[in-house]
Design a protein around this nucleic acid. Structure first.
Lengths: 195, 195
DNA sequence: GCATAAATTGCACACCATGCAAGGATCTGG
DNA sequence: CCAGATCCTTGCATGGTGTGCAATTTATGC
């Protein structure tokens, strides 16, 4: 086995706490739930709750999946057009997010009403954006351009998730397709008749 | 006079509290400053502090200037290329932000280290993005494309501010020029050899 | 097994944020 | 200029948040 008993238990309680947080948040609203209630519902002491997460908003968000090294490598070394390589990268990442749709939907609901939670996620997204910028520097040789592309990409992901939340019967990857189409149209509009 | 004594005083104390918050945050870090200290420094009671702002992060951010109706009208009814009309719009907005550079710099410093503050600002930016999306719908007739353009625009503003914070001797509008160049290059790269 | 490291917990404490009610300042119309 | 309405400020009480510390229990590696 690759994980020790201690490590497995740690991951397990972390998940238990997040699960308890999200369930209580969905039924009563995160603002109206105390850390004490969450801890009790997860079967740990209040003090232990704070050993895992620094506050209830962080507990609700948990640890979102980051980019995979393999995917980043593929993007850096891709030989197709930048647009299609980038789309492929986002598709893979989105596929990973889709693995936990239930959690994603609950987290989204919390984010809509809680400022603090948004801030925590925003910090996480900022570091993802930075990571992607570094990665894209291997393709474009200009940091500002790489940053613009990375912003486009992470924004597209966010908007795709938001679209998926609104529309029933629309998968995450299908939502990303729609959003990406918009991104490409916007790029064409911006370049049209300029210069 | 257009404002009553009451209204003027209200604006004034709101500014006093923000000023006190930012000054204390700069010298000690917002985390290490209590609402009690801020209130005392602003010359009001703790209770009054909370009558103006719901927490110290909101007090630090204050009320950022939103988009002007005149600028939005100009964007909706613009006849030049979309890219240049949008750039003009952003330039005007940035000029307005530049009017209070000192505050902007202090707020930026707070945002870098405070999650809750980021979340509050992010909520504000989301509503600005939404506003801009509505506005752009008058130009592009497709909501997803408008949303992509609006994201590009607000992201460019954020990155321009961040660049301005890093580089000494670079004005806000000059920073926006650099960032915008990157946005346009990115758009060209995305459209190149695709389709 | 046994020493070591890590996890859990209770407790104390400072800080945050809100409701309520009393008192003071400002505004409005006569 | 004054009386009532309205808004603003404040103190107080209260419940929730988050951290430091020390004691106890539970894995781990030798």
């Amino acid at each position: 086995m690759t994980l020790s008993l201690r490590q497995r238990r740690r991951l397990e309680t972390a998940r238990d706490i997040q699960k308890a947080t999200l369930e209580l948040a969905i039924s009563h609203g995160l603002e109206n739930v105390t850390t004490e209630e969450i801890a009790a519902s997860a079967g740990v002491s209040t003090r232990t709750f704070f050993n895992y997460y620094s506050n209830k908003e962080a507990a609700a968000i948990g640890v979102p999946p980051g980019f995979r090294e393999e995917d980043k490598d593929a993007l850096r070394q891709g030989t197709a057009s930048l647009a299609s390589d980038l789309k492929l990268f986002l598709d893979r990442h989105m596929g990973r997010l889709a693995a936990d749709e239930a959690v994603l939907r609950m987290v989204g609901s919390v984010l809509r009403s809680n400022e603090k939670a948004r801030g925590i996620l925003d910090g996480f997204l900022a570091s993802e954006r930075h990571e992607l910028t570094e990665c894209l520097c291997a393709r474009v040789n200009d940091r500002q351009v790489a940053a613009a592309l990375a912003s486009n990409a992470t924004n597209a992901t966010e908007r795709a998730i938001s679209l998926w939340e609104q529309e029933e019967n629309l998968s995450l990857v299908a939502a990303l397709d729609i959003i990406w189409e918009g991104v490409m149209s916007a790029a064409r509009l911006l370049t049209a008749a300029s210069e």
